[in-house]
């Protein structure tokens, strides 16, 4: 597999080439050469959104990324991200799952897959018409200074940048800063005040980034509207009394089954049976021991 990636044709696009993405050319220190894997298509760069966030993604972060990115990617906007684990990888995955296009900008040499265990995502991006880009040739390892340089490409390629979940030291704040500097739009998703992984994104909002409360906040900037924008989150019809109270209980806050059973006053065995069936119907999902209502 490793060899297969090495053998894959690498395209080099120089800055004076007409195929070079024009948004990227506008920044003050654009890369002289871009190395790239996948099918180079100028169309892919037309509508790009950079998505960034913490590596230590919380469940909230994952759900928000899934929700926003899948809807954004499905209307034809390319998702650009940094291929790191956490929010980056989740954004790539969500874009691929909804049938959209995505570009991964690597902090390492074009021949290297980093982190290596995400090889399946890497291959899927290429297979589904996406791109892998790096400004570094060969198989050199990422270093602390290559990440900020990579981030300038991410921000530079995109019309707008979305920060989903970021701590105070998150690298995505660098991307956000660069986006501002390049005069691009900056979006940030608000998070709970109690989470350390929300402090960075909250700070961005405070300093003037656009707060995202729904997918149309972002799409409006691209002159688009999501066809499946829900009128009301958490609304399901045809529920029985127990199911209704489960949905209400979980919509307030995700809960463990023990806590939920105390709230709705039903034994864990009966609740377990009901919630398994609800999960099969796609109404709730479970992560890290807690149950959530699906949007």
């Amino acid at each position: 597999m490793e060899q297969c990636c090495l053998l894959m044709k690498i395209k080099v696009v120089e800055i004076n080439n007409s195929e070079y993405p024009c948004l990227l050319r506008q920044i003050n220190n654009p890369p002289k050469k871009l190395y790239c894997k996948g099918k180079w298509d100028v169309d892919i760069f037309r509508n790009c959104l950079a998505v960034g966030g913490s590596r230590q993604m919380t469940t909230y972060g994952r759900r928000v990324t899934d929700e926003l990115v899948s809807k954004i990617a499905s209307v034809g906007i390319t998702i650009v991200s940094g291929f790191m684990y956490g929010v980056d990888a989740q954004a790539h995955k969500a874009a691929l799952l909804s049938g959209g296009k995505t570009i991964a900008v690597m902090p390492c040499g074009i021949d290297l897959i980093h982190p290596g265990y995400q090889k399946d995502i890497y291959e899927e991006i290429i297979a589904k018409g996406g791109l892998i880009i790096s400004e570094i040739e060969g198989g050199s390892l990422p270093a602390p200074w290559t990440y900020p340089r990579r981030n300038r490409i991410i921000a530079g390629l995109s019309r707008a940048t979305l920060v989903v979940e970021a701590g105070l030291k998150s690298g995505s704040l660098i991307t956000a800063g660069l986006a501002k500097k390049f005069g691009r739009k900056l979006f940030a998703v608000p998070g709970p005040l109690t989470s350390s992984l929300s402090q960075g994104s909250l700070q961005l909002i405070k300093r003037g980034a656009d707060m995202v409360t729904g997918v149309n906040d972002i799409l409006a900037d691209y002159g688009l509207v999501s066809p499946e924008y829900p009128a009301n989150y958490f609304s399901y019809s045809g529920l029985n009394k127990l199911e209704q109270s489960i949905v209400e209980g979980l919509a307030q806050e995700p809960k463990e089954i023990d806590a939920l059973s105390r709230l709705v006053n039903v034994s864990t065995s009966e609740l377990g049976a009901t919630i398994s069936l609800m999960q099969l119907r796609g109404m709730v999902s479970e992560e890290k021991g807690k149950y959530y209502v699906n949007f």
Binding site: I257, S269, G272, A273, I275, S276, L277, L280
Partner: peptide, 24 residues
């Protein structure tokens, strides 16, 4: 689970509860 309830047949609630104890 059905035995604990004294049920002869395995019914939907029994199977649905069993799914709770699957490996994650």
């Amino acid at each position: 689970i059905a035995d604990l309830e004294g049920a002869q047949e395995i019914l939907i609630p029994h199977m649905a509860e069993a799914l709770q104890y699957r490996p994650r």
